[in-house]
Amino acid sequence: MSIRLTDIRAGYDAFRLNDVSVEMRAGMITALIGPNGCGKSTLLKSAARHLDPGPGRVEIAGQDIARIGRRRIARIVSLLPQHPVVPPAISVRDLVAYGRAPHQNLFGFRSAADDRKVDEALDLVELDILRERPVASLSGGQRQRAFVAMCVAQDAPYMLFDEPTSSLDIKYQYEVLDLLRALKSAGKTVVVVLHDIEQAARYADELVVMKDGSFLRRGAPADVVTREMVREVFGIEAKVFPDPNTGTPLISPRDRMSDGAATAARPGCETGRATETVATSKT
């Protein structure tokens, strides 16, 4: 009962994965980390068959998903893309209700069961009081929670998220990460691409490290996030030490000393590639 990827060669013209084989275990949060352009998003998208895995295979819970239709895949695995489009004039409730699409008939009319799932999802992300509000009028953090609720309503046992914290303020980043943890407690298998290694180490049960389109390592955060890995994969000399609160690894780059605010030396507020944000964000 896991997501098992074998020899994945998905990619675009300029970039391909190098036959990546990796397993993401059921009931856990697995975080994919690595430098920009290492292929972590590409791997995530192939796991939901948004991209063709080439000669490779994607098995979810033992089932080869190349053999099943898109609607059935959508009942098994959900994927929240990095910068989802906000359609014009849509309310929070209607957005979340779209998550029910794979379970509905051709016309997408909601059943009582659909309404219940939507309400549950809204409760989980604590947006029930904003349900009638237009999504476009929400703050960045609320908006992201609405999209998470859409995935929750989709009710797939395997839930994938592509950098769900990018371009959010730090408070909202942790809000979203706490939601992922709540999903795990509810029995979901969560796979998430994260930019921040420390957040990944703090929230994930297992980390998958990638570099240059290849799979490098998989394991528990404390085993994976080491001085050597940070140097080898991210190219910085850093001290790695346990977080006094959680015991998970923190990274303090060595050579750029500035009164303790060492983490500021990370690549910064990278927001990633925005391919489909055609200005619908402010409608």
Partner: peptide, 23 residues
């Protein structure tokens, strides 16, 4: 009429439409 709901899903962008099972 038969395609109307697909059109709604398309308004969510190609990526989300795909995740929701509408190619």
């Amino acid at each position: 009429m038969l395609a109307a709901h697909r059109f709604n899903l398309m308004a969510m962008g190609q990526d989300v439409a795909k995740s929701l099972g509408a190619d």
